[in-house]
Structures are given as structure tokens and as C-alpha cells.
């Protein structure tokens, strides 16, 4: 019989923009992912509770790693720039991926926290593309099993309005300040957020529990700069 209570896990998805316009920043993103990996390895209790997926998107989505236990993972495969920027393709992918992952983890005997998506982009989706509809379906908790919290980080010169629309709450949208070390800032931010989400202690309750996200160093809340 499958053990019914093997542990509590948080699925984390890094959804990284690999479109051509990200060419200048892709090395920073790769550095940031490497730092995030290292930082979580230094937090053994936190690392044990995370299953990590890295997805690169442009015209389509390429799965770089899926539901990996960071403690046993080698270095992440590198993101590479390619093609255009289809937010629609990215969100459509998550609509099928996340429920499948949640069901898989539950079938393995784990209990699952609401997934978190770190969306990293320069905020310039394909012109005229309707990405809002799949985004709405993805984040509707009545439609998608495990509808995620999306924390959107706009890389330098990102369009703040777009970034704040992608984030599931206004305070989850950020744009990097000019001159900031994007890779280091993202690594630090993602590590802190992961730790806070999966900490075993509880949050002060309310009817609708909410994820609390502090502003990352070097970033500005996207809504503030509109």
C-alpha cells in the first residue's frame, strides 16, 4: 500500500522568457538560476520540500527540468534565446502541466501546497496575441487544479503594465531597477520567497489565506511605476 503521508511539497515553476529580445539578459537569468540552486542547497529543510521545474518559452515551451529534487539535481540546463514571445503558449502549457504534476505528486503520497510560478520576462509579448484568456483560465481556482500564484519579475526596461497583469496579485509584480544585478537579485528573491512559502510555521489566518511577498532588493513593484 502506498504511504499516504510522505510529506508536504511545494511545486515551483520558473517560466523564463527565451525570446530573441532577452538576448542581453539571458546570461543574467542563467546566473540567477545557478545562484538559486546553490542558495536552496544551503537550506536543506527548504530544499527537501520543493520540486523544481524550469521552463523556457518563446514560440513554444521547452521543459528544461521537471519536478526535480534540487538536492539530487545536477546543474540546471542553460536557457538559450530563440524565436518570438508567446505568453499564450506559456500559459497554455501550464494549464495542462500543473494539474498533471499536482496529481502525480499526490499519487506518490505527498500533500501539495499551492504551486508558485516565477515568471521572468522583458514584458514584450507578441503583438496582438490574446494571452489574457489562457492566463485567466490558468489562475482561476475553479477551473485549473492547483491554479498557481504567479510572481512576475520584469527584466530591465520591462513593460510594467504587462508584468502587473501577469502577476496574480498587484503586489506580486516587480520590475528590475536600472543598473541592478538581475541574476543575483532574482536568486535572492526566489530563495527568500521559497523559504517563506514552505516554512512549517503558520501564517496568521484569514478567510482567504494569502501569500505574502516582500519586495525584492533592486526591484520596484510594477504597479507603482505605471
Amino acid at each position: 500500500m502506498m504511504e499516504s503521508n510522505r510529506g508536504h511539497l511545494l511545486p515551483i515553476y520558473v517560466l523564463a522568457d527565451e525570446s530573441g529580445s532577452m538576448d542581453e539578459h539571458i546570461d543574467d537569468l542563467n546566473d540567477g538560476l545557478r545562484s538559486l540552486h546553490q542558495a536552496l542547497l544551503g537550506e536543506p529543510m527548504a530544499a527537501a520540500k520543493v520540486r523544481f521545474s524550469v521552463l523556457g518559452f518563446s514560440d513554444d515551451v521547452i521543459e528544461r527540468v521537471r519536478l526535480v529534487d534540487l538536492r539530487s539535481a545536477a546543474e540546471f540546463p542553460r536557457l538559450t534565446t530563440r524565436g518570438m514571445t508567446s505568453y499564450r503558449a506559456a500559459f497554455e502549457d501550464l494549464i495542462s502541466r500543473i494539474p498533471a504534476d499536482v496529481n502525480r505528486l499526490k499519487a506518490e503520497g505527498y500533500q501539495v501546497h499551492r504551486p508558485a510560478v516565477f515568471f521572468l520576462s522583458d514584458g514584450l509579448p507578441n503583438h496582438g496575441e490574446d494571452w489574457q484568456d489562457p492566463h485567466r483560465r490558468l489562475t482561476d481556482r475553479n477551473t485549473t487544479l492547483g491554479a498557481p500564484n504567479i510572481i512576475a519579475c520584469g527584466i530591465v526596461d520591462a513593460d510594467a503594465k504587462t508584468i502587473s497583469q501577469v502577476a496574480t496579485r498587484p503586489e506580486f509584480g516587480f520590475v528590475a531597477n536600472k543598473g541592478v544585478d538581475v541574476g543575483a537579485a532574482i536568486a535572492k528573491f526566489c530563495t527568500a520567497l521559497t523559504k517563506s512559502v514552505i516554512s512549517s510555521g503558520r501564517s496568521l489566518g484569514s478567510a482567504s489565506p494569502q501569500l505574502v511577498v516582500d519586495k525584492p532588493e533592486g526591484f520596484t513593484v510594477a504597479i507603482d511605476v505605471i
Binding site: 508536504h8 499536482v102 499526490k106 500533500q111 501539495v112 501546497h113 499551492r114 481556482r141 487544479l145 492547483g146 491554479a147 510555521g201 503558520r202 501564517s203 496568521l204 489566518g205 484569514s206 489565506p209
Partner: peptide, 14 residues
Amino acid sequence: TAGADGLLSSAVQP
């Protein structure tokens, strides 16, 4: 208690 979608919540009214 898990929510309607079976996900865990850590919020509590203490």
C-alpha cells in the same frame, strides 16, 4: 484541512 482543490493551507485563526 485541505481546500476544495485538495491543496494545503497553512493559515490559522489563533
